[in-house]
Design a binder for these strands. Sequence first.
DNA 1: TACACTGTTACAAATATGTGAACACTATTT
DNA 2: AAATAGTGTTCACATATTTGTAACAGTGTA
Lengths: 244, 244
Amino acid sequence: MSNSVKKAFEIIKFISNNQGKLSLSELGRQLNMNKTTMFRYLETLEDLNILERRGSNWYLGIELFSLGHKVDANSRIVERIHPQLVEISKRLNETVNLVGMYDNSALYLDKVESNRALQIRSQLGDRLPLHCTSLGKAIFSCLPLDEADNILNIIELKPYTYHTVTSIVELKKQIEFVKINGYSLETEELEPGLSCIAVPLHIESIDFYGGLSFSGSPDRFIEEKVKELSVELKALASKILAMF
Amino acid sequence: MSNSVKKAFEIIKFISNNQGKLSLSELGRQLNMNKTTMFRYLETLEDLNILERRGSNWYLGIELFSLGHKVDANSRIVERIHPQLVEISKRLNETVNLVGMYDNSALYLDKVESNRALQIRSQLGDRLPLHCTSLGKAIFSCLPLDEADNILNIIELKPYTYHTVTSIVELKKQIEFVKINGYSLETEELEPGLSCIAVPLHIESIDFYGGLSFSGSPDRFIEEKVKELSVELKALASKILAMF
DNA sequence: TACACTGTTACAAATATGTGAACACTATTT
DNA sequence: AAATAGTGTTCACATATTTGTAACAGTGTA
């Protein structure tokens, strides 16, 4: 395999998590690469507009922006579903989110925000952990049993807040709840001040495993509201399934 | 400079414009690379999730999606402006667009769609030509004179439709119009059935040259409407400038 | 059965890469 | 004003990686 290509992307990925913080020399040290080597890679990537230098700090470049928006994530599933998200978000004035499963995490594919949208940390393209998000739990509930077990064995139940579920037994219980009730709940397990309610979205024909959720402030998701929202999400999922 | 990194991105870029159409061997032929060489690059890029293979066709991979959404395009200008676009789009029920200038073209940075949004070909991340878009003309009007002249000399006035301006004299006239009136118009020059009205957006402090536009069906942009919309766009631009 | 097309592996030859040292800067510290 | 520590950049050279040829395996078609 191509070593230099791998290294180039190692650099790109590292910069993506540390934009504007690192100089050429710093990068060399942190990634154990010679300064000259680093120089040549950065020079090339800058020339391609994949990276961008401002002063002596490095950022992801505009070409990645272009490429990123051309990704045909699962047969343009995002584009096809988007109008449905807009409709439900407007009608109920809720923030609605779409994720798909990739590499044992939930890739944040799309969202449509409500008026009262909170400022949350996650952004499109981020990978959300499966164990402490309603979306993750919803995904677990629709995965083939053996695959779900595999992942449950592999993943680390990293605590993000004091509410994060870190017991595998408890997590499995919650997944059972989703299987029975068809929706999942999560209260400030990932981010303080943020709750979600989600349903699984499994599109068999294109081998898509994902989920749909409403997110918002925990105090808004009281019991009766949850009932109502879960019904809405299930209806949305059905409507989407009918499109494929 | 790093040859293999350049080649890798040549492949990625080529695939981005021909997703799902090309096999390994085809790619090798079209890009004048040896089959084995191509094999090794594709293998590596697939391993990195930068490319994705379905059957024997190639697509951009999910990792590019992630990276693309982390691009800090001009100090998160998109994120900061987005809420303003949402507000005006909802209030007037118009589709509003934001572009920034990069590499002699207008990079499509953000849009918020109206109810009656047309299905247009362009998508976020695309580069729009400057000469036949209202946004391009708006950008010309705010660029430093010498830079505008430079670009006008370089760019090719490629015709996209029967309405595309292909005369440099006429184009300069239109740019003068923008300078005097503060907004620009374009009627089906890029895509049949699509018109735009735009204003320049020049944020000096961050060296940003771009534009804001409403887009829609040509028959809707009658004269009085244009007046009204241009006033709205100018107000929006002022509001945004005040944020920086 | 032969043909044309896929994708894949192995190897020797050609080339790009990695390295450390030396250089030119700028900003702080002494 | 001199010394220091930090940038980024260029050079030459041995090493390691990439490259292309050729051969092989698989699939579908004539």
